[in-house]
Structure formats: structure tokens, C-alpha cells
């Protein structure tokens, strides 16, 4: 109940929809999940800036600046998450951008804690529901406010 109440309060304090950049880094071309998440977030009222495949950290930092992004969502299906995700977080820190990074995809249970330690704000597994996606994004953005 208290969660519902606080979200109403949030709503009345600003009309601006969340702006979320969605991208994949590196060679991995599995974008089914990213495209589904884009639709989930759109239907949750977010503005999704969809970059799609083969973006670099520099691309994403630059886009986040221009689009004044609230959150960055990365999708990873190639087991490269342990190297790529921390590098993204590091690139944002280097640019002094305080924007949370959410990683989705096939992430083994044992990698979740190390990723969080590396500064990833949240991890969404392959079976995450629409409700879970929406709540996670809202929570990580509000945590930075």
C-alpha cells in the first residue's frame, strides 16, 4: 500500500516520463529481449531511446548526454557481461554521469553479486515479467533522485 501511495506522490510531482536508453554492446546480435523490453517500457509510459546493436561505451555516454537519459538498459546474451557491464559503468563514472545501468539477459546466479559490486544497479533475468521490468527501472531511477 505504501508503495502505491508513494508512486502517486511521485506522479504528481513531475509529468516527465522516464527516458531510457536501450542498447547492446559488442558483437552479440540477440536483440529479441531488448525489443520486447522496449515495448514493455513503452507500455509502462517510458520514452525509450532505442539504439539497438553494436554500440560502444562512448556511443552510449554521448547519447545519454544528448538525450538526458534517466537510465541505461543493456542486454547481454553472450556471457560477456562480466567484462562489458563494469566497463559501461566505468565509462559513465569517467564522464561524471550519474545514470543507473540495468543489465538484462542470461546472467548466471553467481555473477549477480560481482556485477552489483561493480556498480550495476540491477540485473533482470531471462524470465523477468513486465511488472518486474517496470518496477526495477523505477526503483533504480528513484534511488538516484
Amino acid at each position: 500500500m505504501s508503495e502505491a501511495a508513494s508512486s502517486v506522490e511521485t506522479e504528481s510531482s513531475s509529468d516527465a516520463p522516464l527516458r531510457i536508453v536501450l542498447a547492446k554492446i559488442g558483437f552479440d546480435g540477440h536483440d529479441r529481449g531488448l525489443r520486447v523490453v522496449a515495448r514493455i517500457l513503452r507500455d509502462a509510459g517510458c520514452e525509450v531511446i532505442y539504439l539497438g546493436l553494436r554500440q560502444t561505451n562512448e556511443d552510449i555516454v554521448s547519447v545519454a548526454e544528448q538525450e538526458d537519459a534517466d537510465c541505461i538498459g543493456l542486454s547481454m546474451h553472450n556471457a560477456g557481461h562480466m567484462t562489458l557491464a563494469p566497463k559501461m559503468v566505468e565509462a559513465l563514472r569517467a564522464a561524471e554521469l550519474d545514470i543507473p545501468v540495468v543489465v538484462g539477459g542470461i546472467i548466471p546466479e553467481s555473477d549477480i553479486e560481482p556485477l552489483k559490486k561493480a556498480g550495476v544497479a540491477a540485473i533482470l533475468g531471462p524470465g523477468a515479467s513486465a511488472e518486474e521490468v517496470g518496477r526495477t527501472v523505477r526503483d533504480v531511477v528513484n534511488a538516484r533522485a
Binding site: G26, F27, D28, N78, A79, G80, M82, T83, L84
Partner: peptide, 22 residues
């Protein structure tokens, strides 16, 4: 592996973590 499928060599920047993996 992914770098080979994408036409890139094992010493390409993006190949890190992908060489011989899949």
C-alpha cells in the same frame, strides 16, 4: 566463435571474452 562470424579477428577490441567461446 562470434568474432569469426562477424568477420573480425581474435585481436579485435570487441573480441575480448568471445574468442573460442561459442
Amino acid at each position: 566463435d562470434m568474432p569469426t562470424l562477424m568477420g573480425r579477428d581474435s585481436d579485435h577490441e570487441w573480441s575480448e571474452g568471445e574468442v573460442g567461446r561459442a
